[in-house]
Design a protein around this nucleic acid. Structure first.
Length: 256
DNA sequence: GGTGTGTTTCCTGATT
DNA sequence: GAATCAGGAAACACAC
């Protein structure tokens, strides 16, 4: 299942990569955070669930499922196309109706947030300074979908979330309408893709890693290391073209 | 502190 | 000639 924001904004091709990423992306969406310290740092803001946007509701949903090791495909996300106020008005029965057995977990989580001085409230992006609003932020942040997160660990990586370069690439590919013109599928069924704006992708990757000196040269070196691990396969004779290998997970349509 | 992993950086040489 | 590819080597950050 793929989370779909109702109002997504495509990044104009003319916008520089520096402007494509909101300040808070690197601040809050550092994927190194996704392990032990993730929740405590990410959920450390003071916004009450009542005030959440739809995006923040989804973010909470995602984090809660992650926290309980629940596969996101087990609940219909469209039932949570709500803002914080609507969410807080849901009864226990509403939750179980919307999410089945997971509903009780979600209800408990939300109740805790509402009554425990909301120590774990979702990141509010209230400091957002770019021209992207929260739904637009979803463009990039949502590329780490719960389903792919939970279903795509690498053989050598115990971290189930999208922390690695190949996952970063994959997630851009899985959201073409939200990250247009950067990378595109050449052969979707075979996992063949091509960089359209190699330096832009490198800068995006660098932004994510807080490394302003990242270049395609360096990124491609990291990509080449994936050949040995069979996460990527060589595509001979074609520039900027790569192919997912047998150890890459979560890119196939059947896995969505 | 040691180790393993996943890059990152720099490099040389080949190819397009 | 510039961009890209390929891969060796060392360094680095981080988790365990």
């Amino acid at each position: 299942m793929v989370l779909q924001a109702s109002s997504v904004m495509s990044i104009p091709a003319t916008v520089s990569v520096d402007n494509q990423l909101p300040v808070s992306w690197t601040t809050h969406y550092n994927c190194a955070d996704v392990t032990s310290g993730y929740m405590s740092r990410l959920w450390s803001q003071d916004l009450h669930p009542q005030n959440w946007t739809k995006y923040q509701v989804w973010e909470w949903l995602q984090q809660t499922l992650d926290m309980h090791q629940i596969d996101a495909t087990s609940i219909p996300f469209q039932n949570f196309d709500l803002d914080g106020r609507q969410l807080c008005n849901m009864s226990f029965q509403d939750f179980t109706r919307a999410a089945g057995s997971v509903g009780s977990i979600l209800f408990q989580s939300l109740t805790d947030l509402k009554w425990n001085d909301f120590p774990c409230s979702i990141l509010p992006f209230k400091e957002e300074s770019s021209f992207y609003n929260t739904s637009e932020l979803f463009d990039i942040k949502s590329s780490f979908q719960p389903n792919t997160i939970l279903s795509s660990p690498t053989p050598s990586s115990p971290d189930p979330r999208g922390t690695h370069l190949w996952e970063f690439i994959r997630d851009i590919l899985l959201n073409p309408e939200r990250n247009p013109g950067l990378i595109k599928w050449e052969d979707r069924s075979e996992g063949v893709f091509r960089f359209l704006k190699s330096e832009a992708v490198a800068q995006l990757w660098g932004k994510k890693k807080n490394n302003s000196s990242m270049t395609y040269e360096k990124l491609s070196r990291a990509m080449r290391y994936y050949y040995k691990r069979e996460i990527l396969e060589r595509v001979d004779g074609r520039r900027l073209v790569y192919k997912f290998g047998r150890n890459a997970r979560g890119w196939r349509e059947s896995e969505k």
